[in-house]
């Protein structure tokens, strides 16, 4: 038959499904922790001298305290909520300006689409981190979430653009029977988004979180008193070599956030990050 060789169905993709569910559950828990951060935290954000300076983890301060005596559990919770909020904002920017715009651009008249892709190619050749730093430098640190989204957008654009198969046989048959380009675009949006929105969102969330926290770590991100995880880790740089817990708590929270987002995005190796 014209189909390729018969091969047995892949041994249970169960592991993949389970890990995806774990990822989404993790994200759900994080969202819960963020929503309840003010209740869960022992102290309000930035409250200095909640305990003595650089206390090791203890029942009173499960994650210890930092250089200013702030309770790290509370600080990490507040930092996590800032990071998650900013990352979500950035993710929306990345998906709309990257994925959505890319999918639409692919269905525009070919020369226009290719010109747009050419422009985005240039930005995609700049490391997203540098692009993010540049945008923040040109605007203000306040716009760090938008900048992180913008920085992730070019790659997302290029990928979404390339995903659209304008030369596909089925599109050609559709055109031959009078189906308009607008209907074809509607197809792309409906089906691609139905199939991939969750995956794309989770993946973009992971990417934007990394950019955002790195930018903050380098001093371009969140501005005190709103401290996000990147900034907390940067502040812990001077103390963590002898008080490991100062960096461990925020780093762990960051790691879990990114890991959950990645697991939620699925483990398909053929997909680009």
């Amino acid at each position: 038959m014209s189909a390729a060789f018969d091969s047995p169905p892949h041994a249970a993709p169960m592991l993949r499904v389970i890990l995806r569910v774990v990822g989404w559950c993790g994200l759900g828990l994080i969202a819960g922790a963020v929503a309840l951060s003010d209740f869960l935290a022992h102290a309000p954000a930035g409250a200095a001298n909640a305990g003595s300076i650089l206390d090791a983890p203890s029942p009173a301060h499960p994650f210890g305290t930092d250089l200013l005596g702030r309770d790290l559990l509370s600080e990490t919770l507040h930092g996590l909520s800032v990071t998650v909020g900013h990352a979500l904002l950035g993710t929306i920017v990345a998906i709309v300006l990257g994925g959505l715009f890319g999918a639409v651009a692919a269905r525009l008249p070919r020369p226009v689409g290719l010109a747009l892709r050419g422009v985005m190619d240039v930005f995609a050749a700049i490391p997203a981190l540098l692009l993010g730093i540049l945008v923040i430098g040109l605007t203000a640190r306040l716009y760090a979430p938008l900048a992180a989204g913008l920085a992730a957008a070019p790659l997302a654009f290029v990928r979404a653009f390339d995903r659209v198969d304008t030369k596909s046989t089925h599109a050609e048959y559709a055109r031959a029977t009078g189906i308009s380009a607008a209907t074809l675009l509607r197809r792309d949006l409906t089906y691609e988004f139905r199939d991939t929105l969750a995956t794309v969102t989770a993946r973009a969330l992971a990417a934007v979180t990394i950019i955002l926290s790195t930018v903050s770590f380098l001093g371009f991100g969140a501005t005190p008193p709103a401290r996000d995880l990147g900034l907390m880790i940067a502040a812990a740089k001077t103390s963590y070599l002898h008080a490991w817990w100062t960096a461990a708590a925020p780093a762990f929270a960051l790691l879990i956030l990114i890991l959950c987002a990645r697991l939620a995005a699925g483990l398909d190796e053929s997909e680009r990050p």
């Binding site: 790195t214 990147g230 880790i233 740089k237 990114i258 990645r262 697991l263 483990l267 190796e269």
Partner: peptide
């Protein structure tokens, strides 16, 4: 079995790994 392991390792942002 490697895929999830790799996810965990690759989830660390570069600066965390550096520290």
């Amino acid at each position: 079995s490697a895929a999830p392991l790799m996810q965990i390792v690759a989830a660390a942002p570069v600066f965390c790994a550096g520290l």
